[in-house]
Design a protein around this nucleic acid. Structure first.
Lengths: 332, 332
DNA sequence: CTGAAAGCGCTTACAG
DNA sequence: CTGAAAGCGCTTACAG
């Protein structure tokens, strides 16, 4: 059961394969309507599915993009991936999924793989410095868009980010306006640029109101587990806490568990705020007050940007900054 | 900046491209160690990355598999996808992600796309009957493995499933043993085979103990929203509820919210049980008692099975059934 | 131990 | 309006 090829269609329709090719690629201005119809009919009868691998080899275009991210299991990334895939599909591209677990080695291997598959472009949510990977990508002239995670030295590249600093400022201002004074900040992995930005937003705002103090700062790694661990540490060490600002939602969930189990009432005893607004923040009870990143829009935008790059539509703004938004729910 | 090809490597190394090809494909038994080393060295210097599109065209193998699923944003599927991608990657394959939203039309379009990309195999988590899609897949001799969702008329095909019936039986038995008598069952989309199996597990067990009654049955569609909606209906209609068995975790989360908001204490007033054991079931407080599907193992197994099929390793069991397991947590 | 040549299924100037 | 031919970058018998 050999697959039917363009040759089969051409033979049956009594034309050359060039003509068939043109019809299928809509470069058929010069082909008589009669011929076109005949070709289309034959192709249908034969259940012809064009071999896009052969096509890619000839055109040097794969209509595939790669999406490199730490872990699809993390709701933030799965929502992002969903947005990207939706948009890519709409524009005729499909998406190769790559989970890196923030490992530089895995990133690099995936990049090589993607290049070897003649990928048209890459959406890259980096797990760290990603030096070698980015070098490879650039050497091979593969268009790419960085998302979410800033990378040192790549400020000049195409990227879609969130205004982390402003988001945290808005959150802290809100807490302070509601008479919270002792506001703990739980930072994420402190080597990441986004963590630095979020922390700075907190620090600047607290200092502005004369509320800053070093001993209010703790550090997790963006995981639920770390949220639990840090929160236990917090309630052992610190008295009279008014609120805890977790720099992402996952850590906030972990924190809420620990607080509830230790008899704290949320928000009566302690207010809790997160960052991201992943879907689950509405699952927990009370629902999480958080700084919402427009995750879907960011993914969609990143994909659009990438595909514009692929099509050589230059002269576009290189970096896009999305504005996060305070969403007040039950934990404050 | 043309990409470097096998020809470039061959020329610089002073050999034919056939020799280079053989070295890169480990078919180099016949090649002198000296030549091999020289080729490898040149390749490295030139940063040669083989063009696997060309390779695919020549070998009719893409080392890509497609994974068709309803929605990567749903934690059950993202955990599954993660398992599949991990395993695929380990075996040298990569994964094209396809979200269908349970739409038959989207499934079909993706199948065509995957076939045109010479995909080696497909992992198919169907969103319904999927007749046309499966017909296409079969006509084109693409190996495939069904996962999670049974499809009528395809019992004879390769598939990886969970023993839904047994799982629910175990859960209901457990509730009954703990003196629950009025046990509500919230079914999922009732047209799906998995829903039928889960419902039957409930019905048989309840009848066995003389506890069955039609008015204890409700129906959602596996979404959080439907869990909320149905639960509101339940507390308006039914008195003296001992427990609610939701046929997946997402609906249970929705239900828990509604129960808590209406002043019910869990598990003191009402016990709650879910099905799946997605990661989030540990995020909520109290943590969800649920029937755990071995999601990761199932995904891993499905991927392994598929790749065996791709390699023509026949004589394997066609259908794999995984046994779910009761996990007792805070809601019972 | 290595090379020349055909072929995978397309696309794309070019010629007519 | 349509076809012949070259080429995309590999692999794979086959010959020596």
């Amino acid at each position: 059961m050999r697959k039917v090829t363009i040759n089969d269609v051409a033979k049956v329709a009594g034309v050359s394969k060039a003509t068939v090719s043109m019809v299928f690629n809509k470069k058929d201005i010069n082909i008589s309507d009669e011929t076109r119809q005949r070709i289309l009919k034959v192709a249908k009868e034969l259940n012809y599915i064009p071999n896009s691998i052969a096509r890619s080899l000839a055109t040097n275009k794969s209509y595939s993009i790669g999406i490199i991210l730490p872990d699809i299991t993390n709701p933030f990334f799965s929502e992002m991936a969903r947005a990207i895939e939706d948009e890519a599909n709409k524009l005729g591209y499909n998406v190769i999924l790559c989970n890196t677990d923030n490992k530089m080695k895995k990133e690099e291997e995936y990049v090589k793989l993607l290049i070897s598959k003649l990928i048209d472009g890459i959406i890259f949510i980096s797990g760290g410095e990603s030096k070698k990977s980015l070098k490879l990508i650039k050497e091979n002239n593969v268009p790419f868009v960085l998302v979410d995670r800033y990378i040192d030295g790549f400020e000049e590249n195409y990227g879609v980010y969130c205004k982390n600093y402003e988001g945290v400022v808005e959150g802290v201002e809100y807490l302070i306006k509601n008479d919270k004074k002792r506001i703990i900040f739980v930072n994420g992995t402190s080597t990441l640029e986004i963590s630095k930005q979020r922390f700075k937003g907190y620090k600047d705002t607290m200092q502005k109101y004369g509320l800053y103090s070093d001993d209010l700062i703790f550090e997790g790694d963006f995981t639920l587990e770390s949220g639990k661990r840090v929160t236990e540490e917090i309630i052992n060490k610190i008295n009279d806490i008014d609120a805890i600002f977790y720099s992402n939602d996952m850590m906030a969930f972990g924190g809420i568990k620990v607080l509830l189990r230790n008899g704290y009432k949320i928000p009566q005893d302690i207010s809790v705020m997160g960052f991201d607004n992943i879907q689950i923040s509405e699952f927990v009870e009370p629902e999480l007050t958080t700084i919402a990143q427009p995750i879907y829009d960011m993914g969609k935008d990143a994909c659009n940007l990438l595909i514009k790059l692929i099509n050589n539509e230059e002269s576009i703004e290189k970096t896009h900054y999305f504005t996060p938004k305070l969403i007040i729910r039950g934990t404050t």
